[in-house]
Design a protein around this nucleic acid. Structure first.
Ligand code: FES
Ligand code: FES
Lengths: 146, 146
DNA sequence: TGATTTCCTAGTAAACCCATAGTATAATCA
DNA sequence: TGATTATACTATGGGTTTACTAGGAAATCA
């Protein structure tokens, strides 16, 4: 019942890129700030870009930037892009690969309910919100250091 | 973000044992009804018993039975006994193995919120409820077969 | 051209999941 | 008591997933 590093790193990466407001952000810098291997970030960022959540620019002075307003991203779409399905049991996954016990199963409704509360939470929180928290946190840290 | 088979099988096993109202239930029968390997069930049942959720009786006519009223079990405790911690990120796990970025992390509140909605859902659903669904399902199936 | 940065594909060590095997131990009944 | 039945406990292995690491091709800019 864990979100993998891919999903967690993706969120931190999106916040980091979103907060650098000007132009494209190099992965090298994200890696340094977030203390995550650049090679691993490359893989994660590939998933986000394929899902249309990030835009890229190759070559010198290249990098990544958000493809839309931070408040238009919900956490569900970011996690789904990196984690795949978020449903807590595979029986809920898709119609193709259906569970054989689906019709005689007394637990599926219970799992469906869990899936619903998880998705409702994730879909109602935006990247913009988390960026605000990050900004506040940074200000506080600057205050303390004075 | 998946509940493993251990947790899912544990719930089905608890429902199965709970529904056989008289005396101890043999694992062999549970295995047959639920189509789960008896040897794998042994491992799972061991965890549930250690957590005090089941009582066992060895020897002939032995087996397992619930240790309390079905409505006094919530799904959270059953899953915790088999899955371990249910928190969606390890940063929330325990104070001992703390995340180094905890104090400068802008995402921890978000994860805490997710953890809260999950636990609220799980703690507010009981084994008794699921047993009712199972009973209704059985009745329906009997009706159809007539 | 040369420096830089993304993009793509393999590879790997460790962890975890699922299941099987075998032995030990206890209860029951003839 | 001795045979039978049934659970407890321990060990182990194959398969999959996770979390990285590595190398190099392709694209872009100065
Ligand atoms: S076991 Fe798959 S639907 Fe319940
Ligand atoms: S990364 Fe551990 S608390 Fe945020």
């Amino acid at each position: 019942m864990k979100v993998s590093t891919k999903g967690r790193y993706a969120i931190r990466l999106m916040i980091d890129i979103g907060i650098q407001s000007n132009g494209y952000v190099r992965l090298k810098d994200v890696a340094r700030r977030q203390e995550i291997s650049i090679k691993y970030l490359e893989q994660i960022v590939g998933l986000l870009q394929k899902a249309g959540l990030l835009l890229s620019s190759r070559g010198a002075h290249g990098g990544y930037r958000l493809s839309k307003d931070p408040y238009d991203y919900n956490m569900g779409e970011i996690l789904k892009a990196t984690e795949g399905s978020l449903s807590p049991v595979s029986c809920l996954e898709d119609e193709v690969n259906n569970c054989l016990r689906y019709n005689i199963c007394s637990t599926i409704k219970f799992w469906q309910g869990l899936n619903d509360v998880i998705n409702e939470y994730l879909d109602n929180h935006t990247l913009g919100e988390l960026m605000e928290i990050e900004k506040n946190l940074k200000e506080k840290n600057i205050d303390y250091s004075i």
